[in-house]
Amino acid sequence: MTRLSLLIACIALLAGPAFAQSTASDPAGFGGLAGEADEQINVSADLLEILENENAAIYTGNVVITQGTMQIASERVETIYGEGGPSDLQSFSASGGRVEMAFDDQTVQADTADYDFGDRVLVFTGSVVVVNASGTVNADRLVIDTRAGTSSFSSAGGGGRVTSTFTPGG
Rank of each mutant, 00 (worst) to 15 (best):
M1P: 07
T2N: 07
T2P: 04
R3V: 10
L4Y: 04
L6N: 08
L7R: 13
L7Y: 14
I8Y: 03
A9P: 05
A9V: 06
C10D: 12
C10L: 13
I11S: 01
I11R: 04
A18S: 13
F19V: 01
A20W: 15
A20R: 15
A24S: 14
A24E: 15
D26S: 11
D26T: 10
P27C: 03
P27N: 15
A28Q: 14
F30C: 13
G31Y: 05
L33M: 14
A34G: 15
A34S: 15
G35E: 11
D38T: 13
Q40G: 13
I41N: 12
N42Y: 13
S44Q: 12
A45E: 09
D46I: 04
D46E: 12
L47H: 11
L47W: 02
L48D: 06
E49N: 11
L51P: 04
N53K: 15
N53S: 14
E54D: 15
N55C: 05
A56S: 03
I58N: 02
Y59G: 04
T60K: 02
T60C: 06
G61I: 02
G61Y: 00
G61S: 03
V63A: 07
V64C: 13
T66S: 07
T66C: 02
Q67W: 07
Q67F: 03
T69E: 15
A73L: 14
A73E: 14
A73R: 15
A73W: 05
E75M: 09
E75Y: 05
V77D: 01
V77Q: 06
T79K: 10
I80Y: 13
I80T: 13
Y81I: 08
G82S: 14
G82T: 07
G82E: 12
E83D: 10
G84L: 09
G85V: 04
P86W: 01
L89M: 11
L89S: 10
Q90H: 14
S91M: 08
A94N: 04
A94G: 09
A94P: 03
S95C: 08
R98L: 13
R98H: 03
V99S: 03
A102H: 12
A102N: 15
D104M: 06
D104V: 00
Q106S: 11
Q106C: 08
V108Q: 08
V108T: 12
Q109S: 14
Q109A: 11
Q109I: 06
A110M: 05
D111H: 04
D111P: 04
A113C: 08
D114T: 05
D114E: 11
D116M: 03
D116S: 07
F117P: 00
F117E: 07
G118D: 09
R120E: 01
V121Q: 01
V121D: 01
V123D: 00
F124K: 02
F124A: 02
G126L: 01
G126S: 03
S127I: 00
G135T: 00
N138D: 10
D140E: 01
R141G: 06
V143H: 01
V143C: 07
I144L: 05
R147K: 12
A148C: 06
A148K: 08
T150V: 10
S152Q: 07
S152N: 13
F153R: 01
S155C: 10
S155Y: 11
A156N: 14
G157R: 12
G158L: 13
G159T: 11
G159S: 10
G160M: 06
G160T: 08
G160P: 06
V162G: 02
T163M: 08
S164I: 06
T165D: 04
T165H: 09
T165E: 02
F166H: 06
